[in-house]
Nucleic acid binder design. Sequence first.
DNA 1: TAACTTCTTGACTATGCAGTCAAGTAACGT
DNA 2: ACGTTACTTGACTGCATAGTCAAGAAGTTA
Lengths: 185, 185
Amino acid sequence: MRADARRNVEGIRRAALDVFRAGGLTTPLDEVARAAGVSKGTIYHRFGSRTGLIDAVVEELVAERIAGIIEAVDALDGPLLRFEEYLLRTWLLQFDEPAANDVLMRVLPDSEPLTTLFDRACHFGGRLLHEAQAAGVVRADITPDDLAYLILERGVIVRACDQQTRDDYRRRLDFVLRGLRAVRK
Amino acid sequence: MRADARRNVEGIRRAALDVFRAGGLTTPLDEVARAAGVSKGTIYHRFGSRTGLIDAVVEELVAERIAGIIEAVDALDGPLLRFEEYLLRTWLLQFDEPAANDVLMRVLPDSEPLTTLFDRACHFGGRLLHEAQAAGVVRADITPDDLAYLILERGVIVRACDQQTRDDYRRRLDFVLRGLRAVRK
DNA sequence: TAACTTCTTGACTATGCAGTCAAGTAACGT
DNA sequence: ACGTTACTTGACTGCATAGTCAAGAAGTTA
C-alpha cells in the first residue's frame, strides 16, 4: 500500500470517529470525506462501502461505552437497582451518544461488529431482567423482547425529539422505570 | 368554477381522504394524484400546497376519532380510569390511524385545523390529568407537557416500529400506564 | 528522471419527493 | 361552431444522499 493511501486510511478513520461520534452512524459520508480532506470516492475505494467504514470504527466508537455500563452495573447490589441502573444508563447513553444509539437500535442489522456489540448489551440486560424477576422486584410479564423494545423505543424517541433537554429526558425515564416494577402487595 | 374543476376538487378530496387514511398525512402527493386520476399539478392548482390539501380534509379525517375518545372517556367513572382510558385510547388511535397520529404529533405545526384538533385533545387530557392528580391517583410530578410528550413519544414509536403487532403494542402500553400511577402508601 | 503502477478525484447516475410553469386541452357563452 | 378563458398536464427544477468510474495525479522503482 502506497504511503499516501496509508495516510488517507488513517485520516478517514479518525475523521469518521469524530463525525460519527457527533452525528451518529447515519451521517452522510460526504461529511466524513470533508472532515478527512479527501473525496468521497476515496472512502469507497478504501473501505468498500458505507458499512465497511462503519465496521472499521464502530468498535472503537462504542464498545467502551457499553462495557463501561456493564462493568459499573455489575458492581452494584440488589437486583432491582442493577436492573434499573442498567436501563437508565443505557437510555442516557442513547441520549448522549448518537452512535451508541444507532448500535442499540440495530440501524445496520447486517453488520457483524454492530451485532456483536448489540448482543453483548442485550445478553447482559436479559440476565438482569431474569434475576430481577426471580427476586420478584420487576413485573413477571416482561419478556426479553420487551426489554429490547424498551431500548429501541427510547432510541427512536431520542432521534425524533432532539429538542428536549437532558434533564427532562432523564426525569421522564423515571416514569418508565416505575412502570416496570412489580406491584407491591 | 368550471364543471371539470368542481369534479376534480371533489375527486381529489375523496382520494386524499382514502390515501391519507391509509398512509398518514405525509404520503407523497403523487399518490393522491394517482388515486384521484389527475396530475399533481392540479392538486397544487386547486389547493395551493400540500398543507392546503391537508387542511381541507384533516377535519373530516380525524375530528370524529378524537371526539369519539373524548365522549367515551367522559362517560366513564373515576379519575384514574378516565385518565388511563384517555391515554390508552389515544395511543391505540395513534396505532390504528396514521393520520390521527400525525395530528397528535404536530407534523404540520403551522396548520390551523391541525392545531385545533390537537389542542382539543390536549386540553381534555390536561383536565383529566389535573383531576387524577387532585384525587391522588397519578403521580403528582407529571406535567401537562409530560402528557403531551407521552403521546408524542408513542407517535414516534408507532411510526418507526411498524412491524410490531397490535397486541404487543397494546400489552406494552400497560407498562407505561403503570408507571404514571401514584405510589401506593 | 522516466516509466509504471497505485491512488484520488469529482462529475455522473440513480432515487425519491416538493413544488412550478409553459403549453396544450376542454368547458362555456354567445 | 367558434372564440375566450379556465383548467390540466407532465416535464422540469431543486434538494439531499448513495454509490460509481474514467481520467488525471502522484508515489515508487530502476
